[in-house]
Design a protein around this nucleic acid. Structure first.
Length: 569
RNA sequence: GGCCCCGUGGUGUAGCGGUUUAACAUAUUGCCCUGUCACGGCAAAGAUCGUCGGUUCGAAUCCGAUCGGGGUCGCCA
């Protein structure tokens, strides 16, 4: 006996075929009027998405009627009894994979959208991943601890979602941006190894990879070094993927790049390492040319960088045109190139290098054969982001991305502080509890804040930031010093972080952790572009839930209870 | 907050100032059909073109505003 939804029905006048779908797949049911007229009669009225219960015998299909494009294509259920458990309206869109329907319609009827096998597969993958995480960390002695969803607003970083208090009108809870402070307090409590699959909330503008509420694996350990955290993270990911998705290709051990290396080589702190295409600084060589575009860029403080696309030296003019357009789309003012085409060398218009300079370039960028060299210039900051985007485009253009590859890498030694040019103050690049690197500790007092590196690290994969963490500060004096540098007033510090500082005076162990984003991980593992596809009930870019219609106005009574007046603007 | 793209029967598209009674596919409904699996055949029904305003003799088509969706920059400790 099987139960499920009608995915399709083919009525041949006599014989009726019904494709019945349940979460395990699709099974063809045959109804023959000669053998079981009652069941056949009911089947005549059945429509798409009706819910049926069917009894019969599973048989192999007659010779010549097998369907190789279907998992159950060699068998069928010969029905002798059919019960309609429920009827269905005609669905607003097809319940099948590879549909091309407006996303807002899918979200409006999300329960039908999730009925599609590909969506089920994603939810199933997600469930397997979180189960694997729990089993893995449990086996390593971690304790899963839940932390409150109603906490206190600590304005710093992202905007908080606020929840008004009825019992104390005028006061508000905040939803946690992450359980950061709570997990550090758990370290002070002696938990030693904590984790939680935690919901986080940030009231910021949304993107394909950002939702107002999202899920992180939050974890923290006492008495650990940076390498301890990274090793654990690496084995979690590699074993997870080996177990759940053995066909994915990954490189182990994960490469470690410092922040500076990542920026220098790839122009990004989340480089896509599925392909090489390193940026090479050729400012010095460019300064010796007579090419005015380069010279002017250098004169105004800019740099010239190149990438080598191996074996593409014979790229056509048309390809060069496409690349030039791509460069423009990425924000570059222009694109110069050199095509090494065997003995022949083609320069982009206006550019030329004499033999010795050409040799120098060849050695610097390591041209070995018939390669294509692409060159861009600009002010350092914008050149990096432009080049980084361009790099990805070039990889797509020349098909350099191997399918199913997962290029993980750790990015380490982020700067501890960033200068906020609008606020004219130092801010934490990670968060204010991040420890400086030991060798940079003296700079906290010497004032060379810009050059203090931190014990913060990210895990990146395929050009996306997947996790972020740090070794924390555990002594009060250093923490106090950091707050001072960040420009917090004493009263202010006490108000926002008093509970942390106080706790740290009662024997806080050295500790550190990491917080891998679950939504982005599932998106990468399931080859989807948007994390909306891996969240059962996501919100739109403007934060609307199209199914429930939230956010929504509430009763005056509810507002009055909360002591809230709306100003009707 | 800025910039860009999209909005036409249930769904996906075409039409981009007047031969349009808005086209096509699919879904839907009815009839026919006993081995299909994107079943097939015949027929029917179904959209005042997101909304409001303007330009014009005439607007799905041009302009403006607005709403909804998407992408992106800012933002996201």
């Amino acid at each position: 006996m099987i139960k499920g939804w009608v995915a399709g029905r083919r009525d041949h006048g006599g014989l009726i075929f019904i494709d019945l779908r349940d979460r395990s797949g699709i099974m063809q049911v045959t109804l023959n009027p000669d053998n079981h007229p009652d069941a056949h009669a009911i089947a005549e009225s059945v429509r798409s998405e009706w819910v049926l219960e069917i009894e019969g015998t599973v048989e192999s299909r007659p010779e010549g009627t097998q369907n190789n494009s279907m998992a159950t294509g060699t068998i069928e259920l010969n029905a002798n009894r059919l019960v309609v458990l429920n009827e269905s309206l005609t669905p607003p869109f097809y319940i099948q994979d590879d549909i091309d329907v407006d996303e807002s319609l899918r979200l409006r009827y999300r329960y039908l959208d999730l009925r599609r096998p590909s969506m089920y597969k994603i939810l199933e993958l997600r469930s397997k991943v979180t189960k694997f995480i729990r089993d893995f960390l449990d086996a390593k002695g971690f304790l899963e601890v839940e932390t409150p969803i109603l906490i206190k607003s600590t304005p710093e970083g992202a905007r908080d979602f606020l929840v008004p208090s009825r019992m104390q009108p005028g006061s508000f809870y905040a939803l946690p941006q992450s359980p950061q402070q709570l997990k550090q307090l758990l370290m002070v409590s002696g938990i030693e190894k904590y984790y939680q699959i935690a919901r986080c909330f940030r009231d910021e503008d949304l993107r394909a990879d950002r939702q107002p509420e999202f899920t992180q694996l939050d974890l923290e350990m006492s008495f650990v070094s940076e390498d301890d955290v990274l090793d654990l993270t690496e084995s979690l990911y590699t074993e997870m993927i080996k177990t759940i998705l053995p066909d994915k290709k990954l490189t182990c051990p994960f490469p470690k790049l410092t922040y500076k290396q990542a920026i220098d080589d790839y122009g990004s702190d989340k480089p896509d390492l599925r392909f090489d295409l390193k940026m090479i600084n050729i400012t010095e060589i460019a300064s010796k040319t007579t090419f005015n575009v380069f010279l002017n860029t250098i004169k105004s403080g800019g740099q010239i960088k190149a990438i080598v696309v191996p074996k593409e030296g014979s790229a056509s003019n048309n390809v060069i045109r496409q690349l030039t357009k791509l460069a423009g789309d990425c924000g570059a003012p222009g694109l110069a190139h050199i095509r090494f085409k065997g003995e022949e060398i083609l320069f982009s218009p206006g550019l030329s290098l004499d033999n010795s300079l050409l040799e120098e370039l060849r050695n610097t960028v390591k041209v070995t054969g018939s390669d294509l060299v692409l060159i861009m210039g600009g002010p350092q900051s914008s050149l990096n982001s432009t080049f980084s985007a361009f790099r990805t485009g070039v990889a797509i253009q020349f098909d350099l991305i191997e399918p199913d590859s997962l290029a993980f890498a750790f990015i380490t030694s982020f700067p501890l502080f960033e200068w906020d040019t609008t606020g004219k103050r130092w801010t934490s690049s990670h968060h204010p509890f991040t420890a400086p690197r030991d060798e940079d500790m003296p700079k906290l007092n010497s004032g060379d804040f810009e050059n203090i590196d931190s014990k913060a690290y990210d895990l990146v994969c395929n050009g996306m930031e997947l996790a972020s963490g740090s070794i924390r500060i555990h002594d009060r004096a250093t923490q106090q010093k950091i707050f001072e540098i960040l420009g917090h007033q004493k009263a202010d510090i006490k108000e926002r972080f008093g509970q942390m500082l106080e706790a740290f005076e009662y024997g806080a162990p050295p500790h550190g952790g990491i917080a891998p984003g679950i939504d982005r991980l599932i998106a990468i593992l399931s080859d989807t572009d948007s994390i909306r596809d891996v969240i059962a009930f996501p919100k739109t870019q403007s934060g609307n839930d199209l199914l429930f219609g939230s956010p929504a106005v509430v009763d005056d009574v509810q507002l009055r209870d909360l002591g809230i007046n709306l100003n009707n603007t």
